[in-house]
Nucleic acid binder design. Structure first.
Lengths: 197, 197
DNA sequence: CCCAGATCAAAAAATAGGATTGATCTAAAT
DNA sequence: ATTTAGATCAATCCTATTTTTTGATCTGGG
């Protein structure tokens, strides 16, 4: 119970200092949620009522095209937030699906508690400002990479950027994230292995 | 789309007559939900905002004890309703978990629409009265059986009472429903086969 | 016209879910 | 005290589902 917040506090304290009093307050704003592997947190068309902090586990958010293919938008593991932001902020229907890749424990923050927390604990303004700023910056990277790199480069870059998480992901999900087919990844791998021997 | 309501209308019309006008009205009160195999509909601690009619598929509701063992409360297949009734009616936190055994299509009825439907379509009062009355009666059966029958009798009775659904359930779930271990069921089966040869 | 990568179909490999078996253990009923 | 029904634990087996790989063929942009 206690320990589930430690990931969150560590994460916050990378960006802003917290007093013990603040920590106690913060805890009060969150709800727990445990999800088994491959469970939905959010489906397209639902309202996204929470932003969720991953305390343990691994999730993905994605869209599904007309052909039924998943396009992964984001992976979130320990220390990441995940939600359909447009739906959470503006209250419209979610365009994203979110589900778990591994069994996951989440800390949920409702819109109401989010606002409350920001007014009652001003240092959290700073935390979220930095958080958003960072994710905006990486989102740009992602778009640039999509255009300028070959399949092999994208894959190598992914392994390089997220070595730990690559281990935890089946490679068809990596493919979906990179906008490639699983077959392509498989062939790239074979080529890479050969090149190394 | 149309056809998803046919199970519901058939089920209602076993208990009360409906005009075409009423059918159109009724449709308006429901939302669809599609769930893959092994997905949650409801978790302990959530609010149960809907009662759900199973249009296709198979679900279970259950509690989890301190040791992490599931105790199945109810199976619901085509033509059954499922929910955490206490949570739906009184608005407290759900004590039950509900998830799918097979891919399932549900018709969801919110508390608000439930009330509306009952006032706007009085014949539905009769439908639900009979429905509740019947489930109360079977619940008694269940309790009696738990005390008075041996494992073998319980299992045989289950197969006999729900021959069709037994086919669709893995036997560890039947075990959990009957308050037995999977091993015990396995041994009973072996015994029964022997006895028949 | 070439080539990176997609698409389609099938097969192979890896995992996960379920069922079975044997070996104890326990509590209630004789 | 002893029997017995059924639980518990651990290991193994079987089967279904997921994931990866492979080969063959197609496609659109440079």
């Amino acid at each position: 119970m206690e320990q589930l917040f430690s990931t969150l506090f560590e994460h916050i304290e990378e960006k802003a200092q917290l007093t013990d009093k603040e920590k106690v307050l913060i805890k009060g704003f969150f709800k727990f949620k445990k999800l088994r592997r491959r469970q939905y947190l959010l489906q397209e068309g639902d309202m996204c009522k929470y932003i969720s902090f991953v305390s343990q586990g691994l999730m993905k958010s994605y869209t599904i095209d007309d052909k039924g293919t998943e396009h992964i938008n984001l992976f979130a593991w320990e220390g990441w937030w995940i939600s359909d932001f447009a739906s959470f902020i503006f209250g419209n229907e979610a365009k994203l699906n979110i589900d778990t890749v591994e069994n996951t424990i989440l800390l949920l923050l409702s819109r109401e508690n989010y606002e409350k927390m920001l007014t009652e604990i001003p240092v959290m303004e700073r935390y979220f400002r930095i958080l958003y700023q960072n994710s905006l910056a990486t989102k740009d990277n992602r778009l640039i990479s999509a255009h300028t790199h070959t399949a092999e480069e994208k894959y190598a870059l992914f392994l390089d950027t997220y070595p730990a998480i690559s281990q935890r992901l089946p490679q068809n999900l990596i493919a979906s994230y990179l906008g490639l087919t699983p077959e392509t990844i498989s062939r790239i791998k074979r080529k890479m292995v050969k090149a190394n021997t």
